[in-house]
């Protein structure tokens, strides 16, 4: 088994069809530990479907999901979460009537920790993210920005090897967005994991990611460094439209 396969989460020629609609058609991506990678694409490109496939919420119609060299295509979300695939959602989806600390504890206990160790892990993560003062607050009583940050903290409480963040900065103002990005940039080194960041905001992607995948219409369009992707005419066309790109 090569080094890449042992520290990666991959999709190989993944297809997903909902009836006659092909949401994904032969997408290949590889998420590596130790870095932040980006996944971009226009609305309806298949980004969230791809995250659902990677996290076990959506079974591929064809193709494979490979975690550390092992085919996990048939595994459900619980199994993949325990195997080290953490994710956040477009909506924060916090447990509203549980405290922030209990939100994180749920993920920590889900990985097999006992309650006391789960409390310790939860507090460490909250403190690291500068959210320690929110521990006793109910999930339903948080501001929008805090909700989104806590949802990332909860995914981190799994101590994931791969963290999938689905538009974590959406709806945030510029300052909140910058703060969040500095946290996301620090995650791979602190947690020894890989991050896949799904984001519409190109500035955010360019500022944080070392490698970017682009999907459009359910197909892989391009991948490379942020600069390479930005200069790719196909990507410009997908984002800006044929005529604007030519201009």
């Amino acid at each position: 088994m090569n080094q890449l396969a042992e520290n990666s989460l991959e999709t190989r020629n993944v297809h997903v069809a909902f009836g006659g609609i092909h949401a994904l058609s032969g997408v290949d991506i590889t998420i590596k530990t130790g870095m932040v990678q980006g996944l971009i694409g226009p609305n309806g490109a298949g980004k969230t479907t791809l995250v659902n496939v990677l996290s076990g919420f959506q079974k591929p119609t064809r193709g494979h999901v490979v975690l550390n060299g092992k085919d996990v295509s048939g595994d459900g979300p619980q199994k993949l979460a325990r195997a080290g695939v953490g994710r956040s959602f477009q909506a924060a989806r916090l447990f509203q009537d549980m405290s922030v600390e209990q939100n994180l504890m749920t993920a920590a206990i889900g990985t097999g920790l006992n309650k006391a160790d789960a409390i310790i892990r939860s507090r460490e993560i909250l403190d690291w993210m500068g959210l320690g003062h929110h521990g006793a607050v109910l999930g339903g009583a948080l501001s929008y920005g805090d909700e989104r940050r806590i949802s990332i903290a909860r995914a981190l409480a799994l101590h994931p090897k791969f963290l999938l963040l689905d538009e974590p900065a959406s709806g945030m103002n510029a300052e909140e967005s910058q703060n969040l990005m500095s946290i996301i940039r620090a995650i791979p080194a602190h947690f020894n994991c890989g991050v896949l960041l799904i984001e519409h905001n190109m500035e955010v992607i360019m500022g944080v990611c070392e490698h970017v995948y682009v999907v459009d219409g359910g197909r892989s369009l391009a991948n490379g460094t942020p600069r390479e992707v930005q200069d790719n005419p196909d990507v410009r066309r997908a984002y800006l439209g044929e005529e604007d790109a030519a201009a």
Partner: peptide, 20 residues
């Protein structure tokens, strides 16, 4: 109990937390 209350609040998010 904490895991079960998490499933009461949001089954999808609980599944993403590894909760059976």
């Amino acid at each position: 109990g904490i895991l079960l209350r998490a499933t009461r609040a949001d089954e999808v998010a609980a599944a993403a937390c590894g909760v059976s």
